[in-house]
C-alpha cells in the first residue's frame, strides 16, 4: 500500500534521486567516531541543528498559550508554567535548549576554527556561519524579554541603552527596536515577539539552507 503510493508519487516527481543523493553520499573515514574517537568533535554542528529543531517545535507549542502583550504576557507564562500539564517542561526545554544551542554552536565554531576548516574553498560558508552566530545571539536577546518579568525588562532596558550609544544611528536604532523613544513597553514587546518568532526564524532557515548546501557541495574538510 505505502509502496504503491510511493511509486505513484515517484513516477511523477522523481523523488528517489533527491533522497538518494542525501542518503548515499560517502562520509569520510576521519569524521567517523568508529575509526577515531576524537572524531566526536564533528558532531557539534549536527547537535546544534538538532537543538534548533527542538527550539522550533517547543517554540511553536509555547505560542499556543503565550500572548505578546504587557498586561497578559506574564500572566500567560505563569498560567502555562503552573496550570498547564507539562507546560513547565515545554518551557524548560525551550529555555535550556536556548543555552545548549549557544554552547553547541560555540563548540562547533571552535572546531572549525582550530582545524582551519574555513580556509579556501570554504570561506563563504564560514561567513554564513558567523552570520548564524549573530542570529542566534539575537534570538537569545529578543527571547529573554518575552516572559515580561522583572529581569527580562530590566536587562532589555540595559541592552537598549547600549544600542542607543552606538555612533550616528544610536537614537534611531533604539526607537526602532523599542517602538518608542522613551518607553519600554507595549510596542517593545510586540516588536521583540515578531522579531523572535517570524523575522529571525526566517533568516535562520535561509542561512541554514545555504550552510548545508555548501557543505554538500564542498564536502567536509579533509583530515589534518
Amino acid at each position: 500500500m505505502l509502496k504503491k503510493l510511493y511509486d505513484w508519487i515517484d513516477e511523477r516527481l522523481e523523488v528517489t534521486p533527491m533522497w538518494r543523493d542525501i542518503a548515499d553520499h560517502e562520509v569520510p573515514e576521519h569524521v567517523n567516531p568508529a575509526h577515531h574517537f576524537s572524531a566526536f568533535v564533528y558532531c557539534f554542528g549536527g547537535l546544534t541543528f538538532f537543538i534548533i529543531l527542538i527550539q522550533f517545535l517547543s517554540g511553536m507549542f509555547l505560542t499556543l498559550y503565550y500572548v505578546p502583550d504587557i498586561e497578559n504576557a506574564w500572566k500567560s507564562v505563569y498560567y502555562l508554567q503552573n496550570e498547564v500539564a507539562f507546560g513547565k517542561i515545554v518551557r524548560a526545554m525551550h529555555h535550556w535548549g536556548a543555552s545548549l544551542a549557544l554552547v553547541m554552536m560555540f563548540l562547533h565554531m571552535l572546531r572549525v576554527y582550530f582545524q582551519g576548516a574555513y580556509k579556501k574553498p570554504r570561506e563563504l560558508n564560514w561567513i554564513i556561519g558567523v552570520l548564524l552566530f549573530i542570529i542566534m545571539l539575537a534570538f537569545g536577546f529578543t527571547g529573554y524579554l518575552l516572559p515580561w518579568d522583572m529581569k527580562a525588562v530590566m536587562a532589555t532596558k540595559v541592552g537598549l541603552q547600549i544600542a542607543e550609544q552606538s555612533p550616528l544611528i544610536g537614537g534611531v536604532l533604539k526607537t526602532l527596536l523599542s517602538g518608542d523613544p522613551t518607553i519600554i513597553g507595549a510596542l517593545t514587546l510586540t516588536r521583540f515577539f515578531a522579531i523572535h518568532v517570524f523575522f529571525l526564524p526566517a533568516a535562520l532557515i535561509g542561512l541554514l539552507v545555504l550552510h548545508f548546501y555548501m557543505i554538500r557541495k564542498q564536502g567536509i574538510s579533509g583530515p589534518l
Binding site: 527542538i54 505563569y78 517542561i89 524548560a92 526545554m93 529555555h95 516572559p147 518579568d149 525588562v153
Partner: peptide, 17 residues
C-alpha cells in the same frame, strides 16, 4: 535535555514593574 527540563523549571520572576 529532557532530564534537565524535567528537574529544573525555567525561572520566572515577578511581573515587570
Amino acid at each position: 535535555l529532557l532530564v534537565l527540563s524535567a528537574t529544573h523549571a525555567a525561572p520566572l520572576e515577578r511581573i515587570a514593574d
